[in-house]
Design a protein around this nucleic acid. Structure first.
Lengths: 343, 343
DNA sequence: CGCAGTTGCTAAAAGGATTTAGCAGATGAT
DNA sequence: ATCATCTGCTAAATCCTTTTAGCAACTGCG
C-alpha cells in the first residue's frame, strides 16, 4: 500500500505533463490553451490515483478554503438553532463548502477569540447568528471579510437575513378576521402600556407592529392585552388562568409564541374549555411543540432552515446585496383554528 | 497601514534572530538550547507585531490543524443534537480546537463525502454522532485517524460515549419503589411480546434491560405494557387513552420517553385524572418539554452536554481508551412524582 | 523570407510555517 | 596542545499548490 498521499506531482508524472498543466486542468481554468488530449490524460491520471488536492497547500497559495465560519451567541438553549444550522449546512454542502461552528455565549471576549480562530483558518466568510434577533456587536474584522448577519442585524454589516415578522403579524390578524373572529380577542405576551419604554428584540417589535397595523386597517381591537417578559409556557399558563379567573370576556387567543400558547392550552384545559370550539388559539414560531399539542396549534413558522440557506447564498454570491433579506413566515394550519367552522 | 499579514520571518527579523529560532521558541519546543534572552526577544517581537501563525502553512508542514470533525447523521430533527454539539464545542474550545460540523443525513454516499471533506482539511480527529444511538457504519478511514463514536457504537471504532441507560432504567424502578409504587404500574412504549424479534437502538435496549433487571430484583411486575414504535406524543396519548377507555387498573405510568409522557398527560387530563395525585408519571430524556409540562415531569436526563465534552476529551487524550464510556443519567425530580406523599 | 501572433506547454517562484543538518566558538579532559 | 563535547544559533530543505513569465515550434501574412 502506498501510504503516502497522492500529490499533484504524481498526477502530472503519470499523465506525462508538467505540474503546471495538471494544476490548470484540474482547477478548470478557463482560457488555458492545453489540448483536449492533455485534459483527458490528466483527468484520467487523477482518477486512477484517486488524487485529492491538499487544501492546506491550496489555501496557503490562494487564501481560499471553501470554509465558512458560523459564529453564534448560543447554540445551546434554543431549539431554534437547529433550523438555522441545518439550512446553513445544507446550502454550504451544496456549494461545496464546509462549516466551522463557533459559539461565543454572547461574550465579547469569546467573540474576538472565535473570530481569530476563524481568521487563522482563513475562512472565506462569516455568518453571525443570534438566537434571538438583536443588534449584534461584531468586533473588528479585516476589511475584505465577507459577512452575513443571520437572525440579527449589525450597523457595520448591512447584509442580513431575517424572518418577515411584520407580514406574519398581519397574516395572523387576517387569518383571525377571515375566520370571523373580530372581537373577544386576547393578546398574550405584550401590553404596550405596561412595556412602554422597554425595547424587545427587533423581530419581536416587527411582529407586534404587523399585528397592530393590520388590526388598525381592519378596525379591530384586542379586548385585553397581557404582558410578560419571557415568553415561556408557565407565563402563558398564568396569564390565561388569570384572565379566566377574573372572567375576562375572551373568545379567542392570539399568543405571541408557541410556548405561551402551550401554557394557554394548559390553563384552558384545566378550566374545561375546548380548543377551538370554545376558544380558538393561534400563535407564532412553529416550535416542535406545536404539532404535538392537542389539538394541533395553528401558527406562523419561523423559516429558520430557509434563513440559513439564504445566508449562505448571500455569503457566496458574486455581488454583495447590502440590505435586509426577509424570509416569509409560512402559515401552518392545524386544528386550533382551522376547525372553527365546526363548533 | 501594513495590509500584509505578519509572518514568522517578520518576527524573527524584529527579534534579530533566525526564523528557526523564532519558530522553535513560539511553538514551545522543549529541549532547544536557545537562551532565555532569545526567548524574551522573540516573544516580545511576536506580541509587538501581533503575530498569528498561518495555520494553513503549519498544517501543510505538520498535518495538524487543531480542528476536529463532528459528523452526525441528523442535526435537524432532533433537539438532542443541541446538547451534544454544545458540549463538544465547549470542550473543543477549552482545548484550543475548533469544530467542523458535517451532516450526512445517514446516507452512506454523503458520509463518504463528509469524511473526504474533513480529510481534505486535515482534521485531527473525527467524532461520529448519531442522534439515535445505533450501530453506525463508518466508511474506511486512514489507519491513523483518531475516532470517537458519540451516542453511537461501531465495530471498527471502539472508543464510544454513551448515556448509562441501564443504570437509569434501574434508577427509575428504584425511584418508583421508594415512592411506594409497587403495583398498578404501566409501561408505555414497549411490550416484549409484541416487539419480539425487532431490534431497537442499542441504548433503548439497555434502558429496558435496566428497568427489567431492577424489577426482577425487587420482584415487581408491570400490570400492563403498551407497545409503540415511534415514541411520539400522539402515541403516548393514544396508548394511555386506550388504557383508560378499557379501564385498565393502572396506578402509575412509566413512560419510555418524555414525548410519550406528554401524550400521556394529555390523555390523563382529558379523563380528568390528576398527576400525581391520581396517577404519578415518570419518564426518560429530560426533553425541554419536561420542565414546561404541568405538573413538571420527573425524568432521567440524557447527559448530552457531558457526552459531547467527554467525546472531545477522549479524542484528544494522549492515550486511546478503547471501550465504552458511560455517562450517568441524572434524575430530575419534578412534581409528577415527587409530590406523591401529598395526595 | 521575415516578422508577428498563436499554440501548447514548462521552469521556477511564491506562499509561511517546521525541521534537518550543521557551523563556530567555548569548555573540559587528557 | 589536541580532541571531544557542549552551547547557541542558522541555512536550507520541505510540505503541496497556484501562478508568473516565457520558451519552442508552428501558422499566416505581406
Amino acid at each position: 500500500m502506498g501510504k503516502k498521499r497522492v500529490t499533484l506531482a504524481d498526477v502530472a508524472r503519470l499523465a506525462g505533463l508538467s505540474q503546471t498543466a495538471a494544476s490548470m486542468i484540474l482547477t478548470g481554468r478557463p482560457d488555458t490553451r492545453l489540448s483536449a488530449e492533455a485534459h483527458a490524460r490528466v483527468h484520467a491520471a487523477a482518477a486512477e490515483l484517486g488524487y485529492r488536492p491538499n487544501l492546506a497547500a491550496r489555501a496557503l497559495r490562494t487564501d481560499k478554503t471553501r470554509t465558512i465560519a458560523f459564529i453564534s451567541d448560543v447554540v445551546a438553549t434554543t431549539r431554534f438553532a437547529n433550523g438555522l444550522i441545518r439550512g446553513t449546512l445544507a446550502a454550504a454542502d451544496e456549494a461545496g463548502h464546509v462549516v466551522l461552528l463557533l459559539e461565543t455565549g454572547g461574550e465579547p471576549a469569546r467573540e474576538v477569540q472565535a473570530i481569530e480562530a476563524a481568521l487563522d483558518r482563513q475562512v472565506d466568510g462569516f455568518i453571525f447568528a443570534a438566537m434571538r434577533a438583536r443588534e449584534v456587536f461584531v468586533p473588528a474584522l479585516p476589511a475584505a471579510s465577507r459577512v452575513v448577519m443571520l437572525n440579527a442585524t449589525s450597523r457595520q454589516h448591512p447584509v442580513s437575513v431575517l424572518p418577515d415578522e411584520f407580514e406574519a403579524g398581519r397574516a395572523a390578524i387576517r387569518l383571525l378576521d377571515s375566520a370571523g373572529i373580530r372581537d373577544g380577542l386576547a393578546l398574550i405576551g405584550h401590553n404596550p402600556v405596561v412595556e412602554q419604554g422597554y425595547f424587545r428584540s427587533e423581530t419581536v417589535s416587527r411582529r407586534l407592529a404587523g399585528i397592530r397595523a393590520e388590526m388598525e386597517r381592519l378596525n379591530m381591537a384586542f379586548v385585553v392585552e397581557e404582558s410578560c417578559w419571557n415568553w415561556e409556557a408557565t407565563h402563558g399558563y398564568e396569564l390565561v388562568k388569570g384572565l379566566l379567573d377574573r372572567r375576562a370576556p375572551i373568545k379567542a387567543l392570539l399568543c405571541l409564541n408557541d410556548r405561551l400558547a402551550f401554557g394557554a392550552y394548559q390553563a384552558l384545559g384545566e378550566a374545561g374549555l375546548k380548543i377551538p370550539a370554545d376558544i380558538p388559539v393561534i400563535s407564532f414560531d412553529n416550535d416542535e411543540l406545536a404539532a404535538d399539542l392537542r389539538p394541533g396549534l395553528t401558527t406562523f413558522a419561523l423559516p429558520h432552515e430557509r434563513m440559513g440557506q439564504e445566508a449562505v447564498r448571500l455569503l457566496l454570491a458574486p455581488e454583495i446585496e447590502p440590505f435586509e433579506h426577509l424570509i416569509p413566515m409560512t402559515q401552518v394550519l392545524r386544528e386550533s383554528l382551522s376547525n372553527i367552522g365546526d363548533g
